[in-house]
């Protein structure tokens, strides 16, 4: 596993911003799930390594509004297989029927939590310990 210092988390999840350890770089964007995928796609095309799968979790892309993906902080050389994974993730996103609904705050909170724990599981962080930073 690469050193944590090489990671950059691209996220639209405020809980991730609050709970990640100080030595892990986080870039927060106030955008949609799909826009996070597009941001990461463009970074991968520019040579950033894709470290985590964009479609982490069984919560469907039209269900949760939150997405966090880890890429390399610095661009290197574009990896074809990683470019394929991020671009086909956008295709997968687009095949889900958009759901128009207002989600209550308690549900949004749980979606933020799941996205956060999937990220922790991916990079080997203790999710429960990190939550103590969410004061």
């Amino acid at each position: 596993m690469e050193s944590r210092s090489t990671y950059l988390v691209i996220t639209n999840n405020p809980l991730v911003v609050k709970c990640m350890p100080a030595d892990l770089a986080v870039e927060y964007h106030d955008v949609t799930y799909r826009e996070v995928l597009v941001l990461v796609r463009d970074m991968v095309y520019a040579g950033h390594r894709l470290y985590t799968h964009p479609l982490s979790g069984s919560v469907k892309p039209n269900e949760t509004p939150y997405k966090s993906i880890v890429v390399s902080k610095k661009p290197k050389k574009m990896e074809m297989d990683e470019a394929f994974i991020i671009s086909s993730s956008i295709e997968t996103f687009d095949k889900f029927t958009p759901i128009r609904r207002e989600l209550p705050e308690r549900v949004l909170k749980d979606f933020r939590l799941i996205d956060y724990t999937l990220l922790c599981g991916a990079v080997g962080l203790d999710a429960v310990a990190g939550l103590s930073n969410n004061k």
Binding site: S56, G57, S58, I114, T117, L118, L119, C120, G121, A122
Partner: peptide, 8 residues
């Protein structure tokens, strides 16, 4: 085996 995080 499903192995991703909480509830997964």
């Amino acid at each position: 085996l499903q192995t991703q995080g909480l509830l997964h």
